[in-house]
Amino acid sequence: MNSIIFRTVSRLLMGLMLLFSLFLLWRGHNEPGGGFIGGLVAAAGLVVYGLADGPKSMRLILRADPGAIALTGLLIAVIAGLMPVVGGSDFLTGLWLFIGATPTDKGLALGTPLLFDIGVYLAVVGGVVGMVIAIEESL
């Protein structure tokens, strides 16, 4: 798998997949997608890249320890759940902020569930990539 073409293509593919994964993450609350799927797509992109360039390059791209990314994802999810608690609501209750809301249209809805989903995304990316790197490196 040392061909330059495959490496270039894989890099391109990875970029596209990362972008697509973010798109999936963003729209997941209303359309098929979400943190899991987005995370899996992103991870798949990175894995494809890693297959072409070796696990070391995956580490380089990530810049951080994949385990730490995964746990940060978990941390974000917990924080998203705890934010409403500060306001006296139950753990994991959705808090929403509507930007540019009009009586007919809710506008841009930002809420803790979205943050939660970002945590999920990070955890899945970090987790899957971490596993793949570890297995690749041990071979």
């Binding site: 899991f36 899945v124 987790g127 899957v128 596993m131 570890a134 297995i135 041990s138 071979l139």
Partner: peptide, 24 residues
């Protein structure tokens, strides 16, 4: 099911690695 699939993936990947380590 979605939850179960993702959990299953984690467990199975672990088991795969365990098999590898056991072999090694």
């Amino acid at each position: 099911v979605l939850t179960a699939i993702v959990i299953g993936f984690g467990l199975v990947s672990f088991t795969l690695t365990l098999a590898l380590r056991a072999w090694q």
